[in-house]
């Protein structure tokens, strides 16, 4: 009989060329640039740090209110406020490099050229391990979700960025599409090294007394527990045709939801909204996945990814 208690468990995963010591990162926009949480959480234990979305230049984002709590989660319409490539490299990369943890930079632009230029410039920044392409943000008028819901645009965008960089590319797919498999194929055929899914779901909340939308941007992105089952189904569908690893996110509040994603076919996971409630939740997720694998006699993540049993 195998002695499971002392069995060595390999938590490492290669996410399209990004070598993570464990399969847990944080979702873009929910963990700042890592340093904001460094006083509360040992960020060096994360599998990777995924930072807030940046474009070429500084960007002010949307007016307030930028968020509202809703049952099962929250809506946000931050609008991708950020320091631009230069500001990011100067202000935030020194700390990120010091962590020794792979850094995934979420990037966006208003057209193909800007995405490619951001990617090109980040290729020269020491310590950047990979790029998550934000082609599905519901909160910016230009680009954003409009890019992510047309497979031809996704293919063209990924191809353009592919030509601009050798860094691992991880397009972040929009959930609000009729058939996710079409987008999986479009992205991987265009040169994606991994796929990130899902972005927030386009959503809205109205104040019934003032009769006005609560968010200044009127609409926003829904995140949190409410979207988890939606995301699991999309990851499961995507995994059927994906030839590259999937980074799954959407409503992970603890280890259980992360394990669910991995059973559905994810190679790695990102914790998002839960960081706001419990900054240490990602570390609990890492420990919880390891404990689960031990309990189920799994020695490596390959035994967990896609292990869902569908008779």
């Amino acid at each position: 009989m195998v002695d499971v208690a002392s069995q060595k468990i390999d938590m490492a995963v290669d996410l399209g060329g990004i070598r993570m010591r464990n399969p847990v990162t944080v979702a873009s926009g929910t963990f700042g640039y890592g340093q904001e949480y460094a006083g509360l959480v040992d960020v060096t234990r994360l599998g990777a740090i995924t930072v807030k979305g940046i474009r070429l230049g500084e960007w002010a984002g949307n007016p307030l209110p930028r968020h509202v709590e809703v049952p099962g989660g929250m809506l946000n319409a931050i609008g991708l406020q950020g320091p631009g490539v230069e500001g990011f490299a100067r202000e935030y990369m020194p700390f990120l490099r010091s962590t020794g943890v792979p850094v995934i930079v979420n990037i966006w632009g208003t057209d193909e050229n800007e995405y490619a230029e951001v990617a090109r410039r980040l290729s020269d920044v020491e310590g950047v391990s990979g790029l998550e392409l934000n082609i599905s943000c519901p909160n910016v008028k230009e680009g954003g979700n409009a890019f992510g819901t047309d497979p031809r645009t996704v293919a063209a965008l990924v191809a353009a960025v592919r030509r601009a960089t050798k860094l691992p590319l991880i397009p972040k797919l929009a959930p609000n599409v009729p058939d996710i498999k079409v987008f999986v194929r479009a992205a991987q055929d265009a040169g994606a090294d991994a796929l990130s899914m899902i972005n927030t779901l386009p959503a809205m909340a109205i104040d019934i007394e003032s009769k006005r939308p609560i968010l200044a941007n009127k609409v926003g992105g829904l995140s949190g527990s409410a979207i988890h089952p939606v995301a699991v189904k999309l990851v499961w569908e995507a995994a059927k045709v994906a030839q590259v690893p999937i980074l799954a996110m959407g409503g992970i509040m603890g280890p259980e939801q992360a394990i669910e994603f991995m059973l559905a076919g994810a190679a790695a996971v990102a914790v998002g909204t839960a960081n706001f409630i419990d900054p240490s939740v990602s570390l609990r997720v890492i420990d919880g996945i390891e404990a689960y694998m031990r309990r189920h006699g799994m020695g490596s993540l390959r035994e967990l990814t896609g292990a869902v049993v569908c008779d």
Partner: peptide
């Protein structure tokens, strides 16, 4: 007094 989310400067909700 602004409505906050993360409280630590990460989420940019209370700018």
């Amino acid at each position: 007094d602004k409505r906050m989310v993360c409280g630590v400067g990460a989420c940019l909700a209370c700018v």
